[in-house]
Design a protein around this nucleic acid. Structure first.
Length: 528
DNA sequence: CTGGGGTCCT
DNA sequence: AGGACCC
C-alpha cells in the first residue's frame, strides 16, 4: 500500500489504475452454442452435420453453424432463409419444453460449482466464483483457453491470478457440460458481468476467453457501436443517435448533463459507466420464477369463440407449468395483441387477483386437471378479455398470452432475523486497528464457519450475501447520485471514473462504520 | 405475421 | 399497465 503520496496519486488515477482499484470478483459467463439447435440435434442426432434452423411461426429464431456457414442468420424470416439456403432443414421450436428441461440441467451443473448462478434466458448463465479463488503458494497464471488481446501487463490488485484460476474453473464447467449433457458452450471470464459476457463472444463456438483487467477498455471500444452494449436497447439507442452519439468513444466523452437531459440521471449514469466497461451489478441468484406464462401468436381472429378456444389451449399449457412449479399464484394476467385498423398492432394487458384452488389439493380431488377450477379461470380470462376489447366492435386479435404471478415473496418476514448478521457478527475495527485489510479477506467470511452450517441454512446465508450485502447495491439515487458533502454541481462535471470511485467509497462508508480519513471523498468536500 | 418467453423500472 | 431491457 502506498503511504504519504498515495492519495495524491489517487486523484489522478482513473479506472485504469492498477494498484488501488480492485477487480475483486471473478465472474464466468456461460453461453450455450446455438442453444435450440443443439437441443434438437441431441434429440435427433440424424440432424447433426446438416444445416438446421429452428423456427417459430415464420421466423428462424436460431440455427446451427452449418446453416450459418450457408448464410442463415438469427431472426431471419423463413422465406429469406430458404432463399439463402434451400437445403435448410427446419425444426419447430414453438414448444419450449425440451429447451426448458435442458436449461435446468445446465443450471444444476453450474450450481455444483457455485451457489451464485444467475440465468439469463434459457441458454446463458452468470456464475460468480470469487469465493472459490484460492491463494496459491506459487504464482500461477496459466490461463485456460484464449486471453483477449494478450498483453504483458499484470494488474497489481492480483486479479490476473484470480482470473487465470477462473479460467480453469470455466474450463471444468464446460467439460462437465460436454461430458454429462453433451452440450458445447462458450465462456467469458472477467471481473464483472458486462465484460464476462462480452469477452465470451470473441471466440465462438465451443471456446472460452479471459479478459485481463488491463484490456477492458480495449474490449468495450472494440464493440464500436453503443447499441452493441448489453443494456443499451433500441429506445436508448434512438435517443443517443438524436444526440449524434454513434460510437462508444463519443458516449464516453459526452458530458453527463447532456445524457441526463435525454435519459434521466439514472440511465445516463448507468450507460456511461457501461461505456467504460464498468458494471458493479452483482450476480443475482436465480430463484423460482416470479411469473409463469404462455403465449401464442396467430393470424387475426375475430370471434369470442375462437378466443375461448385459444385461451383453453394456452391455459392447459400454462397450468402444467404452474403445477410442476408447485406454488400457488394469486394473480392472473391476460395479454392481447390487437391489430388496430390504422396503425400497427398494440399489446394491452389486464390483471386480476385470483384464488388458485388446485395445487397440492389435499383431500379434495382437485388436481391439475380439475375441470371446475379451469372453468373458473376461463371465466376470469374472458372477463379480462372484455375489459381489453371494451366497446370495440370490429376488433382483431393476433396474440393471446396468459401469465400467473403473485407468488409468496421469499424474504417476507423479519429480514433482520434472516440476515447474514445473525450468523456472522460484525467484526469490529478494534480487533486489528490499523492493519490494512488483506485483499482476499476484506468483506468476506470464514469459509470454515460456513461448512459447519446445515446445508439449507448455508444456502440462505450465501444468498443473503448476494442479495442484501452491500457492495453493488443498486445505488440509492439521491439527486444525481451525488455523495453527501460533495457539491452536486462539481460532482456532475467529474469524469465518470472519478464519480464511480466516489460512489464506491460512499457505499463502503455506509456499510462499515470504520472511519477512514484518507480517501478520495475528502478532496471534493465543500469546505465548511 | 417479428417468437415465446422472462426481468426490472416507471 | 406499460415500457424498457435480455435471450
Amino acid at each position: 500500500m502506498e503511504e504519504e503520496n498515495g492519495d495524491q496519486e489517487l486523484l489522478f488515477n482513473t479506472s485504469a489504475d492498477q494498484s488501488t482499484k480492485k477487480h475483486e470478483r471473478v465472474i464466468i459467463h456461460i453461453d450455450i452454442d446455438c442453444y435450440y439447435a443443439q437441443v434438437e440435434m441431441i434429440l435427433n442426432p440424424s440432424l447433426c452435420g446438416k444445416p438446421l434452423g429452428i423456427k417459430q411461426k415464420n421466423l428462424v429464431v436460431t440455427c446451427n453453424y452449418e446453416a450459418r456457414a450457408l448464410g442463415v442468420e438469427k431472426l431471419m424470416t423463413i422465406k429469406s432463409a430458404l432463399e439463402k439456403c434451400p437445403s435448410l432443414i427446419l425444426a419447430n421450436g414453438e414448444d419450449l419444453k425440451n429447451y426448458r428441461e435442458m436449461s435446468e440441467k445446465i443450471y444444476h451443473v453450474l450450481q455444483s460449482y457455485s451457489p451464485f448462478v444467475e440465468k439469463l434466458g434459457l441458454d446463458e448463465n452468470f456464475v460468480d466464483v470469487t469465493h472459490k479463488i484460492m491463494k496459491l503458494p506459487e504464482v500461477q497464471q496459466v490461463v485456460s483457453g484464449h486471453t483477449f488481446q494478450d498483453s504483458d501487463d499484470i494488474c497489481a490488485c492480483g486479479c490476473t491470478e484470480r482470473l487465470a484460476q477462473g479460467s480453469l474453473i470455466a474450463q471444468k464447467m464446460r467439460d462437465h457440460l460436454r461430458n454429462e449433457l453433451g452440450i458445447t458452450s462458450c465462456a467469458g471470464i472477467a471481473f464483472n458481468k458486462l465484460l464476462a459476457k462480452l469477452v465470451g463472444t470473441t471466440h465462438k463456438p465451443n471456446q472460452q476467453t479471459t479478459l485481463l483487467s488491463t484490456s477492458s477498455l480495449s474490449l468495450i471500444t472494440s464493440l464500436k457501436h453503443p447499441r452493441n452494449i448489453p443494456g443499451i436497447g433500441s429506445a436508448i439507442n434512438r435517443k443517443l443517435e438524436a444526440l449524434g452519439i454513434d460510437t462508444i468513444e463519443k458516449l464516453q466523452s459526452t458530458e453527463i448533463f447532456k445524457l441526463t437531459e435525454a435519459l434521466g440521471a439514472k440511465t445516463a449514469n448507468q450507460i456511461q459507466q457501461l461505456s467504460f466497461g464498468i458494471d458493479n451489478s452483482r450476480v443475482k441468484i436465480t430463484d423460482r420464477p416470479k411469473s409463469i406464462g404462455a403465449e401464442d401468436g396467430f393470424i387475426p381472429i375475430r370471434s369470442e369463440v375462437e378466443v375461448r378456444k385459444k385461451l383453453m389451449c394456452l391455459l392447459d399449457r400454462v397450468l402444467e407449468l404452474v403445477e410442476k412449479d408447485g406454488r400457488k399464484p394469486n394473480q392472473l394476467k391476460l395479454t392481447v395483441r390487437k391489430l388496430h385498423p390504422s396503425s400497427h398492432s398494440v399489446r394491452e394487458s389486464r390483471q386480476t387477483t385470483i384464488e388458485y384452488a388446485t395445487g397440492t389439493g389435499s383431500s379434495t380431488n382437485q388436481g391439475p386437471g380439475d375441470e371446475k377450477h379451469k372453468i373458473k379461470l376461463m371465466t376470469t380470462l374472458m372477463n379480462l378479455f372484455e375489459k381489453i376489447i371494451g366497446c370495440d366492435v370490429s376488433w382483431q386479435v393476433t396474440l393471446l398470452g396468459i401469465s400467473f404471478s403473485g407468488y409468496p415473496s421469499k424474504n417476507s418476514e423479519s429480514p433482520a432475523e434472516n440476515s447474514i448478521n445473525k450468523y456472522f457478527p460484525v467484526k469490529t475495527s478494534s480487533s486489528r486497528p490499523d492493519e490494512p485489510l488483506p485483499p482476499a479477506k476484506r468483506g468476506r467470511f470464514d469459509e470454515s464457519v460456513l461448512q459447519e452450517l446445515p446445508p439449507d441454512i448455508r444456502q440462505e446465508v450465501l444468498e443473503d450475501m448476494q442479495n442484501q450485502l452491500p457492495s453493488s447495491d443498486p445505488q440509492k439515487p439521491t439527486d444525481s447520485n451525488c455523495p453527501k458533502g460533495v457539491d452536486p454541481l462539481v460532482f456532475r462535471e467529474l469524469p465518470v471514473e472519478i464519480r464511480e470511485e466516489l460512489l464506491a467509497e460512499e457505499r463502503m462508508k455506509k456499510q462499515s462504520n470504520i472511519k477512514k480519513s484518507n480517501n478520495l471523498l475528502q478532496y471534493f468536500r465543500k469546505a465548511s
